[in-house]
Simulated scan of single mutants.
Amino acid sequence: MARRRRKDRKKILERKKAIYVLPNLITTASLFAGFYSIVSAIDGQFVTAAWAIMASLVLDGLDGKVARATGSQSRFGVEYDSLSDLVAFGVAPALLAFFWALQPVGRLGWLAAFLFVACGALRLARFNVQVEEVGTKHFVGLPIPAAACVIATSVMFVDQLGYPGPVTEWPVVVMVFVLSFLMVSNIHYLSFKELGIAKLKSFNWLVATLLLFILVAVQPKIMFFLVLATYVVLGPLGAALMAKKRAKAKEDALAAKKSKETKDQVDVSGQSNAKEEAAEQLS
């Protein structure tokens, strides 16, 4: 009986170990995709490198879901995932951008690539520190996977258009600098973790999802770029609208305060006049 219990306990421990290994294996696959992207970019296979970054994006989203579904979340997994993200979404897209378009610029090119990596590392470090304070409804700063995939889909987009000759480097330089700034900014970006898309029962959502799937399937390279570019632009646009809304609310509050003060002054003046008239009548 005791031997059977020991065997059962051993099986449970082995099962737990297997469950903990599974999400980390997926993270390792994401890391491998990022490394393969670096090798492909060095070899001049830029489209292949871009697809490898997109594959890493899928695996990066999958490892967390598997960890939560199996109850195998751990501090080790969080740290390992961050290191994997730095390679797959920091170093890989930076080198892709460098070998694809930034190399002719010289020093500015490799400095722009390094800036992207450094800002990506800062973005990941800040996320790990603030995740409990900020929550999961939105991100503070552009997520590093989104920034990486903008670079990757830019390569796909240009390839799909059949752009002849070498890529014009200056638009890419500007794009890398802008993405780097957005990653370390305080602009809020929407997180899709708590939207509950899988629980939506609306027929309209089903039709919209189906149409989006068809559009992506027809022109995946173009649609991926447009979707990600829209997501990036919506952050600053939403921040500008919120700032304008807050400024208007502040102006309305000041106007209401001035109106109240004017009304109080009128009331006080009216009371004073009434007292003076009453005093004159008595006299």
Rank of each mutant, 00 (worst) to 15 (best):
E251G: 11
M242I: 08
L234K: 02
G238V: 02
L200N: 13
A256E: 14
F213N: 04
D252R: 13
Y231P: 01
K263D: 13
I222P: 02
L234Q: 03
T230D: 00
D252H: 10
A239E: 09
K201A: 12
I214P: 04
N204C: 11
D252P: 03
V233L: 06
L211R: 04
L228G: 00
K250Y: 08
A239T: 06
A247C: 04
A239D: 10
K248C: 02
I222F: 08
Q219T: 07
A243C: 07
L241E: 09
T230I: 03
K260S: 13
V218W: 09
A255P: 01
K257F: 08
L237Q: 05
L206Q: 14
L212R: 04
L210A: 15
T209N: 14
K244Q: 11
L210I: 12
L210E: 09
V232L: 00
V216Y: 05
M242C: 05
L206R: 15
F203R: 15
L200C: 14
A198E: 15
A208Y: 10
A239F: 03
V227S: 02
T230F: 06
K250V: 12
L212N: 06
A217L: 11
F213Q: 08
F213A: 15
M223S: 07
A240E: 04
W205E: 15
A208G: 05
A198Y: 10
A253L: 12
L226G: 01
K221Y: 07
A240C: 08
K257R: 14
A240V: 09
M223P: 00
L254C: 03
V207P: 06
L226N: 02
L254S: 11
N204A: 15
L254I: 13
T209D: 11
L212Q: 04
L241P: 02
F225Y: 05
K245C: 04
V218E: 03
I214A: 14
A253T: 05
L212G: 08
F203D: 11
A198S: 15
T230H: 00
